[in-house]
Simulated scan of single mutants.
Amino acid sequence: MIDKASPIPIYFQIQELIRKKIGQGEWKTGEAIPSERVLSETFEVSRMTVRQAVQGLVDEGILTRKRGSGTFVSEQKVEQPLDGRMSFTRLMEERGMKASSKIVTFMEREAAPHEMEALKLRTPANILHIERIRYGDDIPIVFETIATPAAMAEGLTEEELNHSFYQFLERKKGLRLGKGSQTIEAVAASARLAKLLKVDPGSPVLSIERVTALADGTPFEYVKAQYAGSRFKFYM
């Protein structure tokens, strides 16, 4: 509980207790937290102190105020280093979340000019064209459009793709993955993307275009990944 003799500000102690309740699952995403009156009685502090603590968590995005309804636990964003290369599956596992995917498109076709340029294909060639939604704990996080040389992806099944494309290349193909380059921009969700990610049309989306290469420098993947801005963030 609150230690009023501690040099740690009371509002900060309240914030830590709220974080703990959320972290332990006592207060779940989307649920309303107790009112300021109830919290002030529970912690035996003034409503002004509770309001200061709650507002700080709202500013951090941990809580969300809804006019006329109360204060709710926000969707907690998944964090990933902007300059890191880590499979989505591993990223979810490291955060104690269950990774899953839904394949929207899985087909071989001729590479478009911009895909040939990105993958450094000098002559017309086929690619494996993939569209998939990736989930963390059954919540849609990102919609990916992937182009990879068909010859390199030979033998890849939808089942293996649902687990990890990178693991398929490393374990089944014996390939060593190298570095990638990417660009990032903020865009608004189209009607189709909003439906796939279960967000409102026009919602903020982090759109990343990435080319990843093998250890020898050969590009093997051209991806456009569109992340729900309310559920994901990058840091440096």
Rank of each mutant, 00 (worst) to 15 (best):
M1P: 11
M1T: 12
I2E: 11
D3L: 00
S6N: 10
P7K: 14
P9S: 11
F12P: 01
Q13R: 11
K20T: 12
K20D: 15
K21V: 03
K21N: 13
E26I: 02
W27M: 02
W27N: 01
K28I: 09
K28Y: 09
T29K: 10
G30H: 15
S35H: 06
E36N: 12
R37Q: 15
R37P: 02
V38C: 07
V38T: 15
V38R: 14
L39V: 10
E41M: 14
T42I: 05
F43I: 09
V45P: 09
V45D: 14
R47I: 02
T49Q: 03
A53K: 02
A53N: 03
A53H: 03
G56F: 10
L57F: 07
V58D: 08
G61Q: 05
R65G: 06
K66F: 06
R67F: 12
S69A: 09
S69D: 09
G70Q: 02
F72H: 11
V73G: 05
K77H: 12
E79L: 10
E79C: 04
Q80A: 14
D83V: 14
G84C: 13
F88T: 10
T89R: 15
M92T: 09
M92G: 09
G96V: 08
M97F: 11
M97H: 13
M97D: 11
M97N: 10
S100I: 12
K102P: 04
R109D: 03
E110N: 03
E115F: 01
E115V: 04
E115G: 01
A118T: 11
K120F: 00
R122I: 01
R122M: 02
R122S: 05
T123M: 04
A125F: 00
I127W: 08
I127M: 08
I130G: 08
E131I: 02
R132W: 12
Y135F: 12
Y135I: 01
G136C: 04
D137Q: 02
D137S: 06
D138W: 02
E144G: 01
I146D: 12
T148Q: 02
T148N: 02
M152Q: 08
E154H: 07
E158S: 08
E160I: 08
L161V: 03
N162R: 13
H163P: 00
Y166I: 07
Y166C: 04
Q167L: 11
F168W: 14
L169E: 09
E170W: 00
R171K: 14
K172P: 08
K172A: 15
G174K: 14
G174E: 15
G174Y: 15
G178Y: 11
G180L: 05
S181D: 10
Q182R: 15
T183N: 01
T183K: 00
T183V: 00
T183S: 03
E185Y: 10
E185L: 11
V187M: 10
A188N: 09
A189D: 03
L197M: 08
K198M: 06
D200L: 11
D200H: 14
P201T: 13
P204C: 01
P204Q: 03
V205W: 03
E209G: 00
V211E: 01
V211P: 00
T212I: 04
L214G: 03
L214M: 06
A215N: 07
P219T: 04
E221P: 01
Y222A: 05
V223N: 12
V223G: 04
K224L: 14
A228H: 08
S230K: 15
S230T: 15
S230A: 14
R231W: 08
F232V: 10
K233Q: 12
M236C: 05
